[in-house]
Amino acid sequence: MSRSVLILGAASGMARAIARSFAAEGHAIRLAARDPERLKDDRDDLVTRYGVEVTLHPFDALDLASHAGFVAGLPDLPEVVVCAVGTMGTQEENAADPEAGAMVMRANFEGPASILGHLANAMEARGSGTIVGISSVAGERGRASNYVYGSAKAGFTAFLSGLRNRLAKKGVHVVTVLPGFVNTAMTEGLDLPARLTAEPEEVGAAVLKAVTSRRNVVYVRPIWRIVMAVIRAIPEPVFKKTSL
């Protein structure tokens, strides 16, 4: 059985931390991103620190036609795939320009769902594997401040939930990760509350733990489970007047 871990969208700070967590356990790592040239330092880092095999792969989440070929071109079918593909854009831009908004939806939902669909089918045929989707608490309820991104993540969360249901008896496990705020390039310049904001390393540790203990839905910081329960419980007539 293969022991490799595939990281999709490997150029982000969160993906780097996730890759380190798995490499520290001795897994071979496949890093995939649009421009693999940018991943060379990350590869050298994983090799130097953990002495594992690391390979780089070009991958474009938006180029759906390339996805089947991408999976077929991997050195092996990975044991674990982590999808950290995503982009936030800014809500102003996404609202003002529906085309930009559609791009955010494609990058956060359509692309990830497509590639995970291909991998899920291959894993189902093999009868083993773990699929990890990095979704977002923003998908739990649409808010004026980032509902375009949030709606894409809501779609992705529902996709993961359905995939988990479908594959539950097929030996393939699906994990949904809801990181909450994370201190990365994506949130640079935002004024985030410290208690709710995780470092990328916390996400890396949480993802590894979720995979080894076969969790279904994980919040990186447990406090988010409470925060989101409250946000979901607010009645719509009240919710629509809030600014969260």
Binding site: G13, D41, D42, D44, D45, T48, R49
Partner: peptide, 19 residues
């Protein structure tokens, strides 16, 4: 601290190249 990658290590000389 975002530039924290080890880039190479030579086990003969003990020289580590790091960010």
């Amino acid at each position: 601290r975002g530039m924290d990658r080890f880039l190479a290590f030579d086990a003969e000389t003990g020289i580590l190249v790091t960010e």
